[in-house]
Design a protein around this nucleic acid. Structure first.
Length: 637
RNA sequence: GCUGCCGUAGCUCAGGGGUAGAGCACUCCAUUGGUAAUGGCGAGGUCGACAGUUCAAAUCUGUCCGGCAGCACCA
């Protein structure tokens, strides 16, 4: 005799057990038709689930946000059915819903081709139109095992082995397709709808482990309706236009070429951007009482052995031989070098904290498949710093750091940053007591700094826990930029110490920290963030002076001189082209300001100020215009 | 690194066993024009590299290099 409480607070009573279909029908025929699944006391259930006891129930229709994952997961099953129908030799493995869609991993000898995707898609539409119901079955463990052993699907056997004993082993059947699955699913394949598209095929290791066999992953996207699908595909197209690799070329910022894979050739405009960013961070660091240093590129392997990098990082290091038979390594990190500076002379507790910064040029031999534009390269510059402090300074230094980081992110237009807290990994240095202290200190700092973090379990560095500050690029990929890492190990390995107030010798703690992460990655993110339309203080060319006719050339050069005198980055365009042509070209080049000078302006010593994207113009006296621009071009204070 | 796809002019792309194509960009000429493309002429390519098949390879095959997507790895 269940009494069922609905989201509006009303209660429905039934004489006997009731399933979701019956419940939805009792509420209304419209709901019965559009119902996809239900949530019973917080648990997602199929509509066919029988309710025996009093509970709270929410009926989910395709309009509900949670239905999105359901549709995508259903769609993955439909895809798996299509694939097994078309290519019976294929083994299915797993197929979850993900952000924006779903995927399914298959195992087969011959990989899928792009052409196969179309075939599969057609078959999927067919299956959806067939509208077979998704039917849940619960099997005994040994039955399930022997089923998959019999049909020779070792991946599924492995999955069953991983299901805890107290969990039911459920299958879902639709038509002739049967799949091990936790569920829930919509009532039938018809409920998936036709607003989906298969996007790509790629290899993916079984269980995400590169020592396992590689599966064939098909990615798809699925939405409640056609309109949302179109909007998503549109968004992808728009995102492609702000891809930093494309804008880097279009705006003449940098290029890369085969002879220097993973390294960047910065063009004048890109380098201007780079220098402006560096200068700004440098100002902020000076305000934050950091001292900037510079350490060697090539360092003898003995130091890397002592620091532990030779052991842990050897594969990623470039080496070179010197004439006296030494093996030198291009630095992949700056920390050992900074410790060397710290160790020059005795340090007292009174010297701490020491905040040592470097725009450290690092080389890492990244796997070729990891390289990505200027976001992931082999030669990059970290806005690195190490804070040498005592253990009881960890929290306060972390808070100061988080404030600085947020200030700098805000300067560059990033207000919302996701922060991951990575705690102790399985393989680590240092004892558990030390780890407890380090994690505690970092946690306290996050709280005090008002940072919301998500836990990234087991992903800390081997020497300590870390915070990762993550930004997202135009095509939805996440990139770690800033980081804060607590390290008790390196000072020990490299024998750094200080004299405490009681006269004893103590180990300092090292906080490894970066804000931008790498200049290169940061610029990549920045290009995409602004879609190439940089704020005027960062813009490589802040203003172009464009003439109407050749008679205005002299005056144009005079305007240029005035701009340059106050430090504005300006250029003239005295080409024999119409003003329309010049406007269009400099607008496409995303120059923030165009100063048009014609005979009228020349006679009155004025300029016509036209801003990027603006429709109108403003006539200003030359002095006023220069002063206004100068003010706007001042970096954030 | 692994799997798949791709590589033709500076860019975007067509073509495809027998003399290499377009648009934009570039050069030069004419045009001196008021807020997102003035008109015309011209130049520009060992068709990623190397091997093989063939009378003949940009085209077919193989190997390598590089790029792209994903996986793995990571700032």
């Amino acid at each position: 005799m269940p009494n069922i409480t609905l989201p509006d607070g009303s209660i429905r009573s039934f004489d006997g057990s009731v399933d979701g279909f019956e419940l939805a029908s009792a509420i209304g025929p419209g709901l019965a038709k559009s119902a996809m699944m239900m949530i019973v006391d917080g648990n997602e259930r199929d509509l066919s689930f029988r309710i025996e006891q009093d509970c709270n129930v929410v009926i989910i229709t395709r309009k509900d946000a949670v239905a999105l994952d359901l549709i995508r997961h259903d769609c993955a099953h439909v895809m798996a059915e299509a694939v097994t129908e078309l290519y019976p030799e294929t083994q299915v493995t797993i197929g979850p819903a993900i952000e924006n869609g779903f995927y399914y991993d298959f195992y087969r000898e011959r990989p899928f081709t792009e052409g196969d995707l179309e075939t599969i898609e057609t078959k999927m539409h067919e299956i959806i139109d067939r509208g077979d119901p998704f039917e849940r079955e619960v099997w005994a463990r040994d039955e399930a095992m022997s089923h998959y052993e019999k049909i020779k699907e070792p991946f599924k056997v492995e999955l069953i082995e991983g299901i805890p004993d107290d969990e039911p082993i459920s299958f879902y059947r639709q038509g002739n397709f049967l799949d091990l699955c936790r569920g829930p699913h919509a009532p039938s394949t018809k409920h998936v709808g036709h607003a989906f598209k298969l996007m790509s095929v790629a290899g993916a290791y079984w269980r995400g482990d590169s020592s396992n066999p590689m599966l064939q992953r098909i990615y798809g996207t699925a939405w409640p309706d056609e309109k949302k699908l179109k909007a998503y595909l549109n968004m992808l197209e728009e995102a492609e236009k702000r891809d930093h690799r494309r804008l880097g070329r279009e705006l003449d910022l940098f290029h890369m070429q085969e002879e220097a894979v993973g390294s960047i050739f910065w063009h004048p405009r890109g380098w201007s951007l780079y220098r402006e960013i560096e200068a700004h961070v440098r100002r902020r660091l000076e305000d934050g009482n950091y001292k900037e240093v510079k350490t060697p590129q090539l360092i003898d392997r003995s130091l890397w052995e002592a620091s532990g990098h030779w052991d842990k990082f050897r594969e990623n290091m470039f080496t070179a031989d010197s004439e006296d038979d030494r093996t030198l390594a291009l630095k992949p990190m700056n920390c050992p070098g900074h410790v060397q500076i710290y160790k020059q002379g005795l340090k007292s507790y009174r010297d701490l904290p020491i905040r040592m910064a470097e725009f450290g040029s690092c080389h890492r031999n990244e796997p070729s498949g990891a390289l990505h534009g200027i976001m992931r390269v082999r030669a990059f510059t970290q806005d690195d710093a190490h804070i040498f402090c005592s253990e009881d300074q960890i929290t306060s230094e972390s808070i100061i750091f988080c404030d600085l980081l947020r200030k700098i992110y805000k300067d560059f237009g990033f207000e919302d940053v996701r922060v991951k807290f990575s705690d102790r990994p399985g393989v680590r240095a240092g004892d558990d007591v030390t780890w407890d202290r380090a994690e505690e200190a970092l946690k306290n700092a996050c709280e005090a700094a008002g940072l919301e973090t998500t836990l990234n379990p087991g992903e800390g560095a081997f020497y300590g826990p870390k915070l990762e500050f993550v930004l997202r690029d135009a095509i939805g990929r996440d990139w770690q930029c800033g980081t804060l890492q607590v390290d008790f190990v390196l000072p020990e390995r490299l024998d750094a110490n200080y004299i405490a107030s009681d006269g004893s010798k103590k180990r300092p703690v090292m906080l490894h920290r970066a804000i931008l992460g790498s200049m290169e990655r940061w610029i990549g993110i920045l290009i995409e963030q602004y879609a190439g339309r940089f704020p005027i203080w960062l813009a490589p060319v802040q203003a172009v002076i464009a003439t109407i006719t050749g008679d205005n050339d002299d005056y144009a050069y005079k305007v240029l001189e005035e701009c340059k005198k106050v430090g504005l980055r300006a250029a003239v365009d005295v080409r024999n082209e119409k003003i329309n042509y010049k406007i269009r070209e400099h607008s496409n080049a995303k120059i923030p300001v165009i100063l048009v000078v014609g005979t009228k302006e020349q006679e009155n010593e004025t300029v016509a100020v036209r801003r990027l994207g603006g429709k109108s113009q403003e006539i200003l006296a030359l002095d006023d215009a220069v002063n206004t621009l100068l003010k706007e071009a001042t970096p954030p204070s």
